[in-house]
Amino acid sequence: MIPSAFDFYAPRTLDEAIALLAEHGDEAKVLAGGQSLIPAMRFRLAAPAVLVDINGIGGLDGLRETNGHLAIGALTREAALEEYTFIRERYPLLADAAHVIADPLVRNRATVGGNLAHADPANDHPAVMLAYGAELAAHGPRGARTIPIDDFFTGMFSTSLEPDELLTEIRIPRPGPGSGGAYLKVERKVGDYAISAVAVQLTMDGPTIRTIRIALTNVSPTPIRAEEAERILTGQTLTDATLEAAGQAAAAACDPSADLRGSIEYKRDLTRVLVKRAVRRAAERATK
């Protein structure tokens, strides 16, 4: 279908964009890569009166690694994540995810910031950034602020961003020695959403898990962490028994709905298995 009619603005600066968002409030939507928004508009699931296209604003894309963190501009295309070798080397969780988001054509347009701000529990970056413990930078008429990822997702398709705020940057804490990560996703075919997917970021102290964060994709109304599973694994060595206990805790934490991708029981059990495999892979990468 053809989308409903709207007014289109393409601001050249962040201030102009924020002014437009402040002026139009709830009527306006931010257009970044458009790979979720445009299909939603075509299905008439979304019919914003105003689109604020941020693609022409300089300085919102690109990757920058400092001593403390990796900063990802909100407008960075998903495809760009696959093009940097240092991402594969130092951020394997992010590299895993970049490879399985939608398909290569969509990744040429889709943005990291859009994937988060859209807050679809089926999207992949929410779990990835929850596992990293990322911080999000937002700009609005009242200035800039940072939002911890744990406070970002407030419901299905809703975040703690105000209607006049723009997500500008994602900051991933730079993994220290002994760190490893992995993202495991089961999808019916390339380009589909996950049936279930698991993001793990951990730090090993020899054979012992010192810290671990685990997050789940598309098995609850919002992206969630599997906190009980994290508690079970922290301070433990990797044994079949601890992994199984963690997998079961994650399966219990999720709240999937039955749909064409599978039953509730299937999605829970798949999550249990993926948690075990993802933790193992992350630990293998850490000890390398």
Partner: peptide, 28 residues
């Protein structure tokens, strides 16, 4: 017509994209 099949793929500024999932005005 739903960003799935890629029949509408064209190359925009060197990148292959699905032209059903970009507004023409964005190609200015």
């Amino acid at each position: 017509d739903t960003s799935s099949c890629g029949a509408c793929t064209v190359i925009v500024n060197g990148r292959a994209i699905k032209s059903c999932t970009m507004f023409a005005v964005q190609a200015d």
